[in-house]
Amino acid sequence: MNEQFLTVSSSPHIRASHSTGSIMRDVLIALTPAFIAGVVFFGINAAILTIVCVLASVATEALIQKFLLKREVTINDWSAVVTGVLLAFNLPVSAPLWMAVIGSVFAIAIVKQCFGGIGQNFINPALAARAFLLASWPTRMTSAAFAVDAATTATPLALIKGGGEAAGGALPSYMDLFMGNVGGCIGEVSAIALLIGGIYLIMRNVISWRIPVIYIGTVAIFTLVFGQDPIYHVLAGGLLLGAFFMATDYASSPVTPKAQIIYALGCGILTGVIRLWGGYPEGVSYSILIMNVAAPLIERFTMPKIYGEVKDNA
């Protein structure tokens, strides 16, 4: 036995088994039920759109890292795949493929790589891309686009905003909302699928319960206080997808518990305000984007009290 080649390094000498890649794979596993629901309710196009987003995201990341930055290509950390899936989940099934590609390139090239790559993006790349597409092609991204059959189906939130049944469409039942048999983006319709994924992420310790639970709770209480149906507001629209998968994005949410609570409260209140009084029926994406920008500030004002910290009595 040759003990002349012992490795010497600084402690600790053992590490946890998880890695960036395994965490991203867990997120993908958690997104799988919603993906299946999307395909069930919207057909094979939902799958094609998702695959195109994933391929475009991964290709953009690889090309930028290899040729533009001349750095190590890190697509094997699976983070670009997650961004691709999340972007697809925020598109209507009728979105053209070229739009999916433009959105993916924007998310990875502008929002992620321009700011330094993984961990450095100050806002959620998929949501920023969605906002970019919404601003550029509003008709293709909103109600008119949520076609299931030949007839256009408005989203549940658009229905309440428009005055419910008086506006023409019948409000879907709780059961339809829960299962996902409603109009909307590919990944947001099935509450049950998103809940399964969200609970999986919390159980696997990928995310903490704080952001999703406080975000959803705040929206429920806010809408209840203002005389709306809280169950409807929780189940309909992008709230569950946003609360479990978008607001919890590591890079763009705060890292400390206290800051996460304030951040989630902010997301919830903004969502309520936009849904009740804003120009859009839906407020999840913009709420999260606004709170993303505020996250560093919240963190700075809620520095955790360290062990044994003595108050300055100067």
């Binding site: 590490r15 960036t20 965490i23 993984i118 450095q120 590591y250 890079a251 400390t256 520095m303 062990y307």
Partner: peptide, 23 residues
């Protein structure tokens, strides 16, 4: 065996486990 370090993803797990409450 320890993998090569990669970029911080800001997951906050170090903040969660620090017994002194550091970042």
């Amino acid at each position: 065996y320890v993998k090569e370090p990669s970029l911080c993803i800001r997951c906050g797990k170090c903040v969660e486990v620090c017994p002194v409450n550091l970042m």
